[in-house]
Design a protein around this nucleic acid. Structure first.
Lengths: 284, 284
DNA sequence: GTCAATATGGAATTTTCGTTCCAAATAGAA
DNA sequence: TTCTATTTGGAACGAAAATTCCATATTGAC
């Protein structure tokens, strides 16, 4: 009369699963151990393969895979596979450690605490995302374009406005000539009309896109004024008007996105531009 | 008898596919364009999902997915999916890896790269810092105070302004009554004079402190209007006027601080307040 | 060595999924 | 407007995959 293990212990993420497998590894029958070894050695195969293909590679029967999964409390092989897939989605360097650190503090007890934690982890994820998705050469090009401009026009509305507003503040401190566009709609176009071919613009717009920003960028582009832009989709109307554009998707928590990563990006760009100018100034 | 396009141009990797999609996106019919946008924005979903699940998320029919794939020269949806899976397997060498490789060389060439990297790591550090230094009970108190207010006055100048500006945007979306103070100095005090004892304020100020913000906070406190504040030192002039205050030190890179962590904090606070209100509203 | 319990292989079954097909709708040309 | 060519939705189909089942093999206890 074997007492069933309470199904409480079904691993919910890859780390937990890995731990359990390693714990019980020696107790497993031959074929199941074979699967265990294969799974930990080739997690990507498990994530992408079919039961049949994996069975062949691991030199077992498909049914053994199902038994393996059930042995660890899963309903079948498919549910086990979900763990391996989730692992690939969330794969970001060093991220697990940070999450663990967050879980340890006692924010999670209170409801507003979980909101707090949610935004912190979302911010971390966003940053990781930016670090991997921004191409250094593109960044370099953007710096070149903007550092070479006489006046930098900063275009942003609504949700993007805080970003350009901060850049304006920083440019002011750094003595970089700039013009913030987007405060009151009426005088925007007059400002932009004064932009000359030695100027450049930096536009920010996230979905849902403010049509004025897109129009203004288009207008500048048509006058051969280079536009660098920051947006959240390759389909953004900004992309087509831009010499260089960056795709930056902020991770969300409960449907709300903060601007953490965008702010870090903006600051990096701002300082890089100022630094480039300083060097150019030295040379000439 | 339509002449078949020579199948020469079937994209073999994700980058090629992305390029082709972007090239032709304007020529695509409505539903196919919808798929195109979804595919580029959610590549992970395409990699792992089933035709049916993806179709649901993208709000099209499964058959549309097949057509989309065939439109770009693939045999069917499955072959297209392989590209998206391959992408996950060969982790694209993003910024982090390339920078690591760059570390050995003298980085005068791509020095903007090191600036970029510097701000990313600084942002991560800031976030970790916030997560450990913000006390959950304090956060809870702050949420209580602000959620209970009729109107929330947002006070911030200069470097802090983008934060309250973003909170104002978010409060607007969330239908939380608020008043942004700090746009033009002249009318600020008139605005604040209207604040009553059922209101509350959220003030942000970082060193070097804007004296007006401190004065305004003091003025409100003297009229028994509760103030919650975000600042970067226990010695901040804001602290003494505040019922609850948070100390948030952004890590710096080369002397410059971004607002990443502050933004994440602000967003967490904003959403927590709105959520609290929603619950209070339900109860009454 | 015998017997019972467990583990395994492989075929049968069922479910799920991708694909195809056709009718209806839409857009575009005349 | 009318007609034609595309595009789209949705059901039907067929293929492929996961799971179940059962006969056989293996292990371990007595």
């Amino acid at each position: 009369m074997a007492i069933e293990e309470p199904p409480a212990g079904v691993p919910q993420d890859f780390d937990a699963l890995k731990t359990v497998i390693l714990e019980r590894k020696t107790l497993l029958p031959k074929r199941l151990r074979q699967v265990a070894a294969y799974a930990l050695d080739n997690p990507d195969e498990i994530a992408f393969g079919t039961a049949a293909s994996i069975a062949t590679s691991a030199d077992v029967q498909p049914s053994t895979l199902v038994r393996f999964a059930q042995h660890f409390g899963f309903e079948g092989f498919s549910s086990l596979q979900l763990i391996f897939r989730a692992r690939l989605r969330e794969r970001t360097p060093g991220y697990e450690d940070r999450l663990r650190a967050l879980g340890d503090n006692d924010h999670s007890k209170l409801e507003s605490g979980s909101i707090f934690n949610g935004f912190m982890t979302a911010a971390h994820r966003s940053l990781d995302n930016v670090a991997t998705s921004v191409d250094p050469d593109q960044f370099e090009r953007a710096v070149n374009i903007l550092a070479g401009a006489e006046t930098i026009y900063l275009i942003a509305k609504r949700r993007s406005y805080p970003i350009s507003s901060y850049m304006a503040y920083a440019f002011g401190k750094l003595k970089v000539r700039h013009q913030l566009v987007g405060t009151s709609a009426g005088i925007d176009d007059d400002m932009l009309a004064m932009a000359g071919k030695n100027d450049a613009a930096f536009a920010v717009s996230f979905s849902p896109y403010a049509s004025e920003s897109a129009n203004q960028a288009r207008m500048l582009a048509s006058r051969k004024i280079p536009v660098v832009s920051l947006t959240d989709s390759a389909f953004s109307p900004l992309a087509e008007s831009s010499k260089v554009w960056f795709e930056l998707v902020e991770a969300d928590h409960a449907g709300f996105r903060s601007l953490s990563a965008s702010m870090a990006f903006a600051m990096a760009l701002t300082v890089a531009i100022a630094e480039r100018r300083r060097r150019l100034g030295e040379g000439g």
